[in-house]
Design a protein around this nucleic acid. Sequence first.
DNA 1: AAGAACTCCTGTTGGC
DNA 2: TGCCAACAGGAGTTCT
Length: 295
Amino acid sequence: MPELPEVETVRRGLEPVLVGARIERLVLRRKNLRFAFPDRFAERVTGQQVKSLSRRAKYLIAELGSGEALIMHLGMTGRFIIDAPDASAHEPGVFYADAGRHLIHDHVVFELGSAGRITYNDVRRFGFMDMAPVADLFQSKHFAGMGIEPLGNELSGETLAALFAGKAAPLKAALLDQRLIAGLGNIYVCEALFRAGLNPELPAGVIATKTGRPRPKAHELAGIIRDVLTEAIAAGGSTLRDFAHTDGSLGYFQHAFKVYDRESEDCVTPGCGSKVDRIVQSGRSTFFCPSCQPG
DNA sequence: AAGAACTCCTGTTGGC
DNA sequence: TGCCAACAGGAGTTCT
């Protein structure tokens, strides 16, 4: 499942096909994903031209000619596949070996006429789609209360310190909390904490003073978060199990992981000599180097 | 009220 | 080889 860099990679793949195209038909192969589709979903989408495709955190936002936005989240295993206009119709139940995709999990199809077809596939169905008026999109339920955009101007040592000051929750949990910073997931939090030399179990408040001012680590961490995400986007995201680009190609940032999914392997820091450790925090794996990230 | 645990769902993997 | 528990990139809801 995709974190911010993977969602951005998907956005860049969809944009040239989707923007400017008209959704001639919306095929819903079931009545829900994680949640029910919005009321009269097909009706509200059919015939609409897509004005733009943007991203906020891990959400994709397609602005429609009607003034409504189509809001899409990929959950853990959601993916989009683009087919040329002349591609034959998919047969549900068939397995696509090349794309690693079960066709039985093709749930939503956007028919774009001469622009082709975009299919949403989601094995675990943790993804969802919704609609809201563009005018007050960021006041709508998915975005109201959402944290700062990690690649936006708001992310700085000052803001991180203000957000984390006094927090007893571990750094790992605070960085994953979408109400504080929106878009980070398990991979990039592990990688960022390693680069910052911060132990994931330390209370989040350690990067701030009692008055909420940034300690040096706050500035460092803010810069590292930006760097890790930027590098991952440049690499086309990370492909572990399910993630693929809209054309079926794969990301390669996973080769740049320093700790994620490297339990018991040697720490990459020259001369360190320690092994990457794995612990469980809030039910999720955390990977870190006990020497480079001392508690 | 904060923080942790549980939940949704399916598929893959690793240990016995 | 088969079986089964553990685990997977998210995040809303429910507990303590």
